[in-house]
Design a protein around this nucleic acid. Sequence first.
DNA 1: AAAGTTAATTATGAATTCATTATTCAGTCA
DNA 2: TGACTGAATAATGAATTCATAATTAACTTT
Lengths: 224, 224
Amino acid sequence: MNLTDSINRPTLHEELVERLRNLVVEDVLKPGEKVPEKQLCDSLGVSRTPLREALKVLASEGFVVLQANRGARVASVTREELENTFPVLAALEQLAGELACQQMDVAEIQRIESSHKDMLSAYEARDRQAYFKANQDIHQALIKGARNDILENHHKLLAARVRRARFLANLSDERWAQAIDEHETMMELLKARDADGLGKAMKLHMMNKLSALVKALKPEVTPR
Amino acid sequence: MNLTDSINRPTLHEELVERLRNLVVEDVLKPGEKVPEKQLCDSLGVSRTPLREALKVLASEGFVVLQANRGARVASVTREELENTFPVLAALEQLAGELACQQMDVAEIQRIESSHKDMLSAYEARDRQAYFKANQDIHQALIKGARNDILENHHKLLAARVRRARFLANLSDERWAQAIDEHETMMELLKARDADGLGKAMKLHMMNKLSALVKALKPEVTPR
DNA sequence: AAAGTTAATTATGAATTCATTATTCAGTCA
DNA sequence: TGACTGAATAATGAATTCATAATTAACTTT
């Protein structure tokens, strides 16, 4: 793409950004919890400098909140935040759907169809773990298929935010069935290379996910 | 919104992020140029630690590129990057337009109309400086009007990226006139609170801006 | 003199140190 | 007993130091 980002060997703080972000997304570090610098340094075997650099980056990504002289806390997942995040994510997925229809080659679409079938099997077996995996593979592949780095980056951050919400509410049987339906539709539209249709379907899919999530949440979920 | 980000006094590295990002966006630090840590530390009167923290953040935002053991370079503005950025930005503006129609109050719309008139005056006077200012105010206000922090944050970063491109090509008379027309349309749709219409108009506005930009660029613009 | 090699210099990544700000806890007074 | 004050402790932000990698300069060798 450009001459300035050719090599880019992974540096210590980059590794830390990834690992810490995972700890937050995977709910190992709980929302509202203080991020104990010293403790983390010990357990990760690094000094405070790279760890703190990583925290600044995570703060700019919205996964932690920094308070001057009071360190970092894991950002909370609020209903309001979700209601803000999903529409943005939906807009990006809509764009991804449109572009993917135009850009993906046949082999890629077949690979998605394979993931789609894995997803259906997982649904039949009511295997949540496998379902989430296949589901994520599909969305990831569609994003990749859009051939747009900027889109991919921004999507990655928003998707990670939203993924944290799965610890707040369970996937209802009703929503699960609906999601499967929506995926069937998306698959058809992709194979037909209906760019506009797939975009709209993916947007709708996201917004329905939000509705289900909000419904499943207690009246007010605002963990510290 | 949540309890964890109540006070947030500005910290040194935050200031630096803002200032350095401005230096990049305002083309003081040129694309491809090395970012001289020591020099900047001296002229800004800070030590390397907060400056380097800021650079990590800017790297994650895409304004600089880090190479292990070789420091930071200002990210270049390539045609490809612009062609990737604009569609994403367009999608966000579309969403903003839709939400703004629903969320803005009458006083806000009037204030936008005032900026709109400023913009028209600037156009009549062919005052590029004033035009850019008014134009940016309008877009900014529409984003604010959407009442969505996530949208605002992501838009801010993408808009800053795109703003750098104004040093690559001049605004043609033809495009300028077209942009004014598009803004007239947008203003009408906003006043009519036509959410769908405004969204589409803003998306189109962005994509036309890209077209004009690409046309004005030399066949291949890939500054080092 | 030109190309290649090695030594000196510089710049960078990361650890450590230092100064300052929060926090905790003991002691005081109502 | 319970709220307030202030000292002791801990944690944080930022500067400094240290080790290493990259760059530059000097020196061969032909």
